[in-house]
């Protein structure tokens, strides 16, 4: 496999980095650009900005954040949260994003996935899936920041997304998000085995061992990390060193 990607996920509200719990309760953490630059310097592999509100006002504010970050952070930047159209995706790409994550709008209008993939390439089109467990081995897709049920099965939706042209899946467990008790390994594995595109596991990282579980048992191709980084309970060098020692193929920092 290529190197396991360690991705910093930054959820944004207005001008601030926030940290939610199960995508709902939020706390302000600080200036997102400061965090992004620090993670870049510490060797994070990618940055994901997620607009937690996605109102018109917030969209402008997000574009400004992306613009500032892209000026000094030379690694892939993914932007998601409330993306509704090809035009919105284009504006965000122009501001400096490399990839667009689409969630709610795609569940209502799946052709948005193929429209973005055809216009900008599949490498730009990240299908964001927020999933909640309904029964053993069954997960339902949620939209609008984990608030609304869609009735769609998460594994089937991942397969459909791949067919429509998604180049990657950003998979968040609504149950595990912000809880720091580990990823939903069964969910990640079910999706990762069902598709041939890479899967980014998101939601639940609390300690180093969680990383090993979701990569080895869950077959995650990449891991999105938020809480433990933003509050400084784990640092990127610490995570990378541990992963290297555990035999996970992370990028060496030269």
């Amino acid at each position: 496999m290529p190197h396991l990607r360690l991705i910093a996920r930054l959820d944004i509200k207005g001008a601030n980095l926030i940290k939610g719990i199960q995508l709902e309760g939020v706390r302000k953490v600080g200036d997102p650009n400061t965090f992004a630059v620090q993670y870049y310097q510490e060797g994070v592999d990618e940055i994901v900005y997620m607009d937690a509100v996605a109102s018109l006002y917030d969209r402008q504010s997000m574009m400004e954040i992306v613009r500032r970050t892209a000026d000094s952070v030379f690694i892939p930047i993914t932007v998601g949260g409330g993306m509704r159209s090809v035009d919105e995706a284009r504006d965000m790409l122009r501001a400096g994003a490399d990839k667009i994550a689409v969630n709610s709008a795609a569940t209502l209008n799946p052709s948005l996935i193929s429209a973005i993939a055809e216009r900008f390439g599949s490498q730009c089109m990240v299908l964001q899936i927020d999933a909640k467990q309904r029964a053993a081995g069954r997960w339902e897709v949620y939209r609008d920041c984990g608030r609304e049920r869609t009735g769609i099965d998460a594994v089937e939706w991942a397969m459909r997304g791949q067919e429509l042209g998604a180049g990657e899946i950003l998979l968040t467990s609504v149950d595990k998000e912000g809880m720091r008790r580990g990823f939903d390994v069964a969910l990640v594995r079910a999706v990762s085995e069902a598709v041939s595109i890479p899967v980014i596991a998101s939601g639940g990282m609390g300690k180093l061992e969680h990383l090993g579980e979701v990569v080895e048992a869950g077959r995650a191709d990449a891991v999105a990390i938020a809480h433990v980084l933003h509050y400084g309970s784990l640092s990127l060098p610490q995570i990378r060193d541990w992963a290297g020692a555990a035999g996970l193929p992370v990028r060496a920092m030269a």
Binding site: P2, R5, Q123, D221, A222, R251
Partner: peptide, 11 residues
Amino acid sequence: RHKIPHIGWAT
């Protein structure tokens, strides 16, 4: 089997 696209960092 491996994932396509090939996404990530390589030496």
